[in-house]
Amino acid sequence: MTVPTELLQCEGVGRRFGSVTAVDDVTLGVRSGEVLGLIGPNGAGKTTLVNLMSAYLSPTSGEIKFAGESIAGCKPHELARRGIARTYQNVCLFEQSTVLDNVLTGRHLGFQGGLWQLGRKRHREEARERQLAVELIELLGLAEHMNEDVSAMSYGLRRRVEIARALAIEPQLLLLDEPTAGMTRTESDEVGRLIGELRAGGMTVLLIDHNVRLVSETCDRVAVLDWGRVIAIDEPAEVWADERVREAYLGTGESG
C-alpha cells in the first residue's frame, strides 16, 4: 500500500487573537483525493483554521503547505490561483446579481484575453466561460434559477450558488465551511451526493459540518477540533467511538 500524499499540510499551526488562542498547534494533513471532515463544538476554531488554509489569516506559529509549497505570505487571490477554493460560513454572494453572474465571476481566472481582444475571439472566450458556468449551475441543480437575483433566494439555494461559484475556479482543494447549515434534509442529502461526485472526480474536499450523518456518510476521515486542538483524526466510526470526542461534545460527569 502506498502512503497517501498530502495535498494540504498544517504543521504545528497556531493562531492567536490577542490572548485568545483560536487554533493551537494543529498538525493535520488533507490527503489528495479524500473528503476530510472537520468537526468540533462551536468556537473550537474550525472557521479560523479554514481562514488560515485560504490565507485570509496568517498563522502566528507553524506552517501550512499546499502541494508541498509553503503558503506563508500568500494572498487569498494567489491561493485561489494555485487551486484552493472555499465557501463561507455566512454565505458571501455578490448581492443584487444573478446566479449566472455570481458563478461567472468565479470563472475570472479562466479568462485570458486582454481588453483589446475584440470581435470573434472575445465572443468565443465569453461563450466558452459562460457555458462552463451554466454547466456548474446545472450540476448544482440551479438551472431554473439561473437568471434570478441571489438576494431574493432561499438560504439553501444561496449555499448551492456559493458552492457552484467555488467550483468555478476549478480547484484542487475545496474548503466547505458548513455547506448544509440551514438546509432541509433533502437539500443536505443533495450536497452529500454532490461531494461524493466531486470525490469520484478526483477532488479533495475539506468539509466542516455539524451534521453527523452527512459527515459519516461522505467523509473518508474526520478530524475533531476542540479548544483549537485536534483531539482525534480517524475514520468516522472510530472517531465517534473516541472517548475524548464524546467528552468534547457531551461533557464528562465531573465538574470543572
Binding site: S54, Y56, K75, P76, H77, A80, R81, A85, R86, Y88, C92, L93, F94, E95, Q96, S97, D101, L104, T105, G106, R107, H108, L109, F111, G113, L115, W116, L118, R122, E129, R165, A168, I169
Partner: peptide
C-alpha cells in the same frame, strides 16, 4: 464599454460588492 463587457468589468463589480470574496476567487484586488 469594453471594460464593462469584459471579465475586467465583472471583476471590478465583484470588488465593489465584496472585496474579500472577490479575492477568494482569484481576483487581485490590490
Amino acid at each position: 464599454e469594453l471594460i464593462h463587457r469584459s471579465h475586467f468589468g465583472r471583476a471590478m463589480k465583484a470588488i465593489r460588492l465584496d472585496e474579500h470574496t472577490a479575492a477568494g476567487l482569484g481576483i487581485n484586488v490590490f
